[in-house]
């Protein structure tokens, strides 16, 4: 087992869909995508965002872009102008996900 920082193998972008946030995570190369595909599960993402994401997390694969897309439900404090959050649109959540360290074999 070794630890790998997500920040070192991937980049991404996040935004809002109502009260849900989406986070696209893109590996810098194919090897990195294999790690994302194998280890970066919806459960891990849900756990990572404990206290931020209060709904379920959907995970989608886009091997063509070396990317995974996560949709985090019930995350933005109501979304739109309802949300009181400074980051009401989840713009900084992709960076927040890149804080994660993955344990890989």
């Amino acid at each position: 087992m070794k630890k790998i920082k997500l920040l070192e193998i991937a980049h991404g972008r996040s935004g809002d869909k109502g009260d849900a946030a989406n986070i696209g995570i893109i590996a810098y190369n194919e090897e990195g995508y294999k790690i994302l595909e194998k280890y970066l599960s919806a459960d891990l993402v849900k756990k990572h965002f404990e206290g931020i994401c209060f709904g379920k997390v959907d995970r989608y694969e886009l091997p063509n872009l070396r990317a995974l897309n996560f949709v985090l439900h019930n995350t933005l404090g109501g979304g739109g102008t309802v949300s009181l959050k400074l980051d009401a649109q989840g713009k900084t959540l992709a960076a927040a996900l890149l804080r994660m360290e993955l344990e890989i074999e």
Binding site: H11, G12, R13, G15, D16, K17, A20, N22, G24, I26, Y28, D58, Y60, L62, L65, R66, A67, N69, V71
Partner: peptide
């Protein structure tokens, strides 16, 4: 590739 890929993933849900 990277700048375009990031935009493709912006505000999407099920990519299919």
């Amino acid at each position: 590739f990277e700048t375009v890929a990031e935009q493709l993933l912006y505000e999407i849900a099920d990519p299919k």
